[in-house]
């Protein structure tokens, strides 16, 4: 892998300032509510050339932060799930239907989160969970679309994730989804912005190291939507991508854009084998 000298100097500076401490992900095990075992470590999927083991972001957080996620009562992300449960049962739109009217109980959605983003044959493109929720709302419920990264949508995606917790992430990267996946992979490895950083520079080359006082994770999204202590609310994948790209001091992409759909598919595939964990608690 090529390493340009100029940006590596910057990266080295960041590492040196951070104490250049190699702090591996810890050894803790995650069980939620004393009963639901979550896989936070797995052999890296075959398509990842430079990583042997994949770790959930949970493993990089402090003991106190980890503890907050281990109990559904303590986890403030579950407040969003509760909000979504109300919406789940509320009839909306011209068809007078609620989500539960067609889908039944929210638990019936188990397995859905684990395979998204996914190729949608009807639409001829890869779609994300958010897109499918809005698709249902518009075409089947006759209701208004929700804002892609808004509270209602993120709460609903958290609900749909929560009923898949413990199931292995398993997004398809071949067949009709392959082209999108390749695009996402290219984005992952492309340096952008004034800081000329790619996702890989931090999350593949430098995971486990400190960036200032933050313990860098592998940037997995198996735990999304995530309740961030930093903004005390649930955050969606595209909202996080947008922030990360902006932090390289680049013109960032929009939530729901083709770039972020492709990137989400690729990043999700880097977590194939970890358990669905959302809503998680992170920094």
């Amino acid at each position: 892998m090529q390493l340009d000298p100029k940006p590596i100097g910057l990266l080295a500076a960041i590492c040196v300032v951070g104490g250049a401490a190699w702090a591996e992900p810890d050894e803790d095990q995650l069980t939620i509510n004393d009963e639901l075992a979550i896989v936070t470590e797995a052999a890296a999927p075959a398509h990842m050339e430079y990583v042997n083991t994949i770790y959930s972001g949970w493993r990089f957080r402090s003991d106190e932060t980890q503890a907050v996620q281990m109990d559904d009562f303590d986890n403030p992300g579950m407040l969003g799930v509760e909000n979504a449960l109300v919406n789940w049962d509320t009839a909306e739109g011209s068809a007078g239907q609620s989500c539960s009217g067609c889908h039944g109980a929210a638990e019936e959605m188990a397995g859905v989160r684990a395979v998204y983003p996914k190729w949608n044959e009807e639409k001829g493109m890869v779609t994300t969970l958010e897109m499918e929720v809005n698709n249902c709302r518009e075409t089947r419920m006759g209701a208004e679309k929700w804002k892609y990264t808004g509270g209602d949508m993120t709460d609903m995606v958290a609900l749909i994730s929560s009923v898949s917790r413990g199931m292995p992430v398993s997004v398809a990267i071949d067949g009709p989804a392959q082209e999108t996946w390749e695009k996402g992979k290219e984005l992952y490895y492309t340096r952008t912005g004034q800081l000329e950083l790619s996702c890989a520079n931090c999350h593949e080359d430098s995971y486990g190291q400190m960036i200032r006082a933050d313990h860098l994770s592998q940037g997995q999204i198996n735990g999304f939507p995530t309740y961030r202590l930093k903004n005390t609310k649930l955050n969606s994948v595209h909202a996080r991508f947008k922030g990360c790209v902006r932090d390289t001091r680049a013109e960032t992409f929009s939530p729901g854009s083709p770039e972020f759909i492709a990137l989400e598919l690729y990043v999700a595939s880097r977590g194939n084998g970890l358990s669905v964990e959302g809503p998680s608690v992170r920094n």
Partner: peptide, 12 residues
């Protein structure tokens, strides 16, 4: 109290 707070916004 933790010796290092992961985030000052929410310290147990």
């Amino acid at each position: 109290a933790p010796e290092i707070a992961e985030n000052g916004n929410t310290v147990p």
